[in-house]
Amino acid sequence: MAWRVVVDMDLCESNAVCMAILPEVFEVRDDDLLYVLDETPSDSMRDKVEQAVARCPKQAISIAER
């Protein structure tokens, strides 16, 4: 099933926890904002994305199934 990474920017505090887990998808840049580099990563990255969902201290990340 297709899925997509969604970050609630109102909750995100740019602490880069997600970036430590999956830099291919999450990047905090020098402007201190989080950028989602790839909203639809391959299924092989699903585990890591789920880790990021669980780990984000602000619960800002979710996975939207389509």
Partner: peptide
Amino acid sequence: MNRPRQIVQSRG
């Protein structure tokens, strides 16, 4: 202090 990206990198 307000350098999250660099701390992630340092951790690696």
